[in-house]
């Protein structure tokens, strides 16, 4: 941290607040990952880190480099776009895999729908009969 003594104070305070908020939200998401009881509750928790946490830290980084280099530095938008697009895709894939595994074993408790689809028809629409398992 050398050569930062002429860094403007308002930008330093704003970058610090965004950094602290982002990392605290990421920490809260992973604490939820530890403390929730079932997988279907746990799958919601880390998205707090990937939306608000990553957003805060990426905005802080954009602001810091824009002020430091006295020009607009927006390359962190690439990470923002990529994380925002890919997180729902991967977690949907993971939740579908978990539901498939729990249904084929028939032991674990799967959260139902509100208007209660019977498990046989839901399974027929979800899993093909020629699945290797």
């Amino acid at each position: 941290m050398t050569g930062l003594d002429d860094f403007p104070l308002w930008a330093a305070i704003l970058v610090s607040l965004l950094l602290l908020a982002g990392s605290a939200l990421t920490l809260l998401g992973t604490i939820g990952l530890v403390r929730f009881k079932s997988f279907y509750e746990r799958v919601h928790a880390p998205t707090l880190g990937t939306t608000c946490g990553a957003g805060g830290i990426l905005i802080a980084s954009m602001l810091f480099f824009s002020v430091l280099q006295s020009r607009l530095a927006l390359h962190e938008l690439l990470i923002t776009l990529f994380v925002t697009v890919t997180t729902p895709v991967t977690l949907m894939l993971l939740a579908r895999a978990a539901i498939y595994r729990d249904r084929t074993e028939g032991k674990a408790k799967i959260p139902g729908f509100q208007n209660d689809v019977p498990p046989s028809s839901a399974m027929a629409s979800d899993a093909r009969p020629d699945d290797p398992g």
């Binding site: 941290m1 930062l4 104070l9 330093a12 610090s16 602290l20 605290a24």
Partner: peptide
């Protein structure tokens, strides 16, 4: 001053 603020908040957020 601003370097101190940035350094402390960076350290804290890295530990979090």
């Amino acid at each position: 001053m601003s370097a101190t603020i940035l350094l402390w908040s960076l350290t804290l957020s890295q530990w979090m």
